[in-house]
């Protein structure tokens, strides 16, 4: 069952298009990555989901509630971390948990302080005296403490050190395993790759791709490096159809395997190869194509 449903959503800022006819569904228990370069419309879509922005056309639902008409019901189900998090300068973690707990009519102190310990955040420091990373931790604690069914996190790993990022990803994986939905936006591929099952890629307000990471990897091709024997002449060697060569540096080729590995293996048997390595799928190259050529699907 879809927990997040975005249907033909369009949002304009005057003459500028924020989101163009976006349709997206995220199921319960999914770790969903929402990728796109800066200004691609990720935050706009998230703000529509949070009932902060009103759609010009189409709409969005979370947990069955219309995000605009029943925004307060949506927020009861959602833990939200804004992309550009700003906190009241007087707010401490303890005060935030007390106030948010009263607003949500539940005691958040215990789960919140457990999260503060997990993220290594001093609970009595005021937000005005916190570093950006500390404020981000407090924002995450406020998003997670009430144990929401849906987590909508706009670039949550920004400003966090690698250790805390790993801790956060661990928490998010646990939540997803327990059936909660994680909607995770980022402009960094590696973050999404480490965490998510499925990815949507946004470019200039348009959906460029919505696939599982496994499907994207199979399309992305794997990186291949071939080192030819010194006595060979690589200039005379024709690559097989499954191999796209990007770089020829003397006796070294860098290429992408775009077809079955068996076909490549058969071809390589008769070649004067000294060394050969086949790496991971090169998602970076695929994403760069999505990012830079909106009109072309790789």
């Amino acid at each position: 069952m879809s927990v997040i449903e975005i249907e033909r959503l369009t949002k304009r800022y005057g003459r500028r298009l924020g989101i163009d006819n976006l349709t997206l569904r995220v199921d319960a228990g999914e770790l969903f990555g929402f990728l796109g370069p800066n200004g691609s419309g990720k935050t706009t879509a998230i703000r529509v989901l949070m009932g902060l922005l009103r759609a010009d056309a189409g709409g969005a639902r979370v947990a069955g509630y219309d995000c605009w008409k029943a925004g307060h019901r949506v927020k009861a189900e959602v833990g939200y971390l804004p992309g550009d998090l700003r906190l009241y300068p007087w707010l401490t973690c303890t005060a935030a948990l007390r106030i948010a707990g009263r607003a949500r009519r539940r005691d958040l102190r215990r789960p919140g302080l457990e999260l503060a310990e997990l993220f290594d955040l001093e609970p009595t420091v005021r937000a005005g005296q916190m570093s950006r990373g500390m404020r981000q931790k407090l924002g995450l604690i406020l998003a997670l403490a009430h144990r929401p069914r849906v987590l909508i996190l706009d670039e949550p790993a920004a400003a966090l050190d690698p250790l805390v990022q790993e801790t956060l990803f661990g928490v998010l994986r646990e939540r997803a395993q327990a059936g909660d939905t994680v909607f995770f936006s980022s402009h960094t591929l590696s973050e999404v790759e480490r965490l998510c099952d499925r990815v949507a890629i946004l470019r200039a307000g348009r959906l460029m791709a919505d696939e599982t990471l496994a499907a994207l990897r199979s399309r992305a091709g794997r990186t291949v490096t071939i080192l030819w024997r010194r006595d060979s002449d690589p200039g005379t060697i024709a690559p097989p159809p499954v191999l796209r060569v990007h770089q020829r540096e003397g006796h070294r080729w860098r290429a992408t395997l775009t077809g079955p590995a068996t076909a490549f293996a058969r071809w390589s048997v008769g070649q004067p190869i000294e060394d050969l390595s086949i790496g991971q799928a090169d998602l970076n190259r695929l994403f760069q194509q999505y990012y830079s050529h909106p009109e072309r699907n790789p």
């Binding site: 949070m50 009932g51 902060l52 925004g71 307060h72 019901r73 927020k75 009861a76 959602v78 939200y80 804004p82 550009d84 998090l85 700003r86 906190l87 009241y88 948010a100 607003a103 949500r104 924002g139 406020l142 998003a143």
Partner: peptide, 17 residues
């Protein structure tokens, strides 16, 4: 202006309230 509205409006309370 201060950017804190996102936190305030993330609570399950209607805007009129």
């Amino acid at each position: 202006e201060s950017g804190t509205i996102d936190v305030l409006l993330s609570w399950p309370l209607s805007r009129p309230r």
